[in-house]
Amino acid sequence: MQLPIGIAHEKSTVSSRVTVSIGIATLIPTLTMDKQALLQAADKALYAAKQSGRNRFCSA
């Protein structure tokens, strides 16, 4: 969903307007789970959002 705010981003080499890309990750925690797993999943989803066109969200 795009909002028609249109904030100028004059110094960007990617877009003339400010965009938001978000990576979302959820999991059911366990006692032995490494906390980095959630952060890595969210990071991977963030880069997927950026690579698929920016200004969107992806979930892991």
Results as ranks from 00 to 15, higher is better:
residue 48 A to L: 15
residue 19 T to W: 02
residue 3 L to N: 11
residue 38 L to M: 02
residue 42 A to K: 02
residue 29 P to C: 01
residue 27 L to C: 07
residue 8 A to H: 08
residue 21 S to H: 06
residue 12 S to C: 10
residue 30 T to V: 10
residue 7 I to F: 07
residue 23 G to K: 10
residue 3 L to V: 14
residue 18 V to A: 02
residue 33 M to V: 08
residue 9 H to L: 05
residue 51 Q to M: 11
residue 56 R to C: 14
residue 29 P to A: 02
residue 30 T to Q: 08
residue 30 T to C: 06
residue 7 I to G: 01
residue 25 A to Q: 01
residue 21 S to G: 06
residue 40 Q to N: 13
residue 40 Q to M: 05
residue 8 A to T: 15
residue 15 S to G: 08
residue 52 S to Q: 11
residue 55 N to V: 11
residue 41 A to Y: 02
residue 18 V to Y: 03
residue 36 Q to Y: 08
residue 54 R to G: 02
residue 25 A to E: 00
residue 31 L to R: 13
residue 49 A to F: 05
residue 16 S to W: 03
residue 48 A to H: 14
residue 28 I to N: 00
residue 54 R to Y: 06
residue 3 L to S: 10
residue 52 S to G: 09
residue 28 I to C: 00
residue 14 V to N: 15
residue 36 Q to L: 08
residue 30 T to I: 07
residue 10 E to G: 05
residue 3 L to W: 11
residue 24 I to M: 04
residue 24 I to Q: 03
residue 10 E to I: 07
residue 23 G to C: 12
residue 45 A to K: 01
residue 25 A to S: 06
residue 15 S to L: 11
residue 23 G to T: 14
residue 9 H to T: 07
residue 8 A to N: 12
residue 24 I to R: 06
residue 33 M to Y: 02
residue 13 T to K: 15
residue 10 E to M: 04
residue 50 K to P: 00
residue 17 R to E: 06
residue 14 V to Q: 15
residue 18 V to W: 01
residue 36 Q to D: 09
residue 37 A to F: 05
residue 3 L to C: 09
residue 13 T to F: 12
residue 4 P to I: 08
residue 47 Y to S: 13
residue 19 T to M: 05
residue 39 L to A: 12
residue 20 V to D: 09
residue 13 T to P: 07
residue 31 L to D: 07
residue 22 I to S: 05
residue 22 I to D: 01
residue 33 M to H: 05
residue 38 L to K: 01
residue 15 S to F: 09
residue 26 T to K: 04
residue 34 D to H: 14
residue 15 S to I: 13
residue 32 T to H: 10
residue 30 T to M: 03
residue 9 H to C: 03
residue 18 V to P: 00
residue 53 G to L: 10
residue 46 L to D: 08
residue 28 I to R: 01
residue 31 L to N: 09
residue 55 N to Q: 08
residue 23 G to V: 14
residue 52 S to R: 12
residue 19 T to S: 06
residue 15 S to A: 15
residue 37 A to H: 07
residue 8 A to G: 03
residue 45 A to I: 12
residue 45 A to M: 07
residue 22 I to W: 03
residue 1 M to A: 14
residue 5 I to H: 13
residue 18 V to D: 00
residue 50 K to T: 10
residue 20 V to M: 13
residue 38 L to P: 00
residue 2 Q to P: 00
